[in-house]
Amino acid sequence: MALLSVSDISVSIGRLTPLDRIAFSIDPGEIVGVVGESGSGKSLTAMAVMGLLPLIGGKISGGSVHFAEFELTTLTEARYRALRGRRVALISQNPMTSLDPVRRVGEQIDQVSMMHLGLGKVEARARSVEMMQQLRIPEAKIVHGNYPHQLSGGMKQRIVIAMALVANPELIIADEPTTALDVTIQAQIIQIMTEMARARNVALMLITHDMGVVAQACDRVVVLYAGRVAEMNTVDAIFADPKHPYTKSLIGCIPVEGLPPGGLKGIAGNVPGVLNYPKGCRFHPRCTRAIARCGDEVPLLRASGAGTVACHLAEVSA
């Protein structure tokens, strides 16, 4: 039984519909990567699950989101608030803006367990320090009393992860958690996050644009393009045999060991904005294999092997 199951949700902001029938699910202890370029709808998907769309004037206009025993689309804000931080946690892209600059980082972690687990000050502090040690923060007791500006970017992101994990949530949504960090720090953070998810049986929705991170960390992958799911499959299948031309091109954009000069191929054109989504398959203007049908008819998500893909070509060849 999936812990989170997102069924055909559409998101509208005013008259625009930036997300169109997004569907995927995450099991407990599973790491699911949500990939796509900027403008593909990754962050909006996260906001939809977290119930944060009203912040940007949006709403879920169709479909349903099940999390554990809850139907999230009809949940009241008060009950949502009790879920956030306690059972579903968010790690955002920028650790600089997720921390309160005028409060000690340790207190900010303490507060989560005091609020959600009803711990006293002393127990909360002990729990925070333990959490920080598990995240390999050296001299956790000292760092507990530091202010955010005293810490490096990688250390701050570890504090944010500690805040996310400390109340033992069942689902963590990480929105580009390492994009702002240097590569060596990124590698450490990804390592820590995957280890923690596996060790605690936490479901992790990892939003990223980096196919390398996906290959390293994820069990399954959802590929988004211009507000729709293009393809979904296990990580091995996605990389070994991508069914959607977009997935294939996206993987081809990464320089790999031994690629001959001139071997790197970009995808022509740009991701369309929500105001000018093309008719039919939204990828067809950039697709090298598009046929006439692609410009007219929206391809539906269909089962293909262990995964699903929304492409007319995949249908023909199947």
């Binding site: 370029e37 900027s38 644009h209 081809g252 954009c253 191929k265 970009g266 995808i267 022509a268 740009n270």
Partner: peptide, 11 residues
């Protein structure tokens, strides 16, 4: 830039 655009520019 996005990876797809990065690859275009490198090309």
């Amino acid at each position: 830039l996005d990876v797809s655009i990065q690859a275009q520019i490198i090309e």
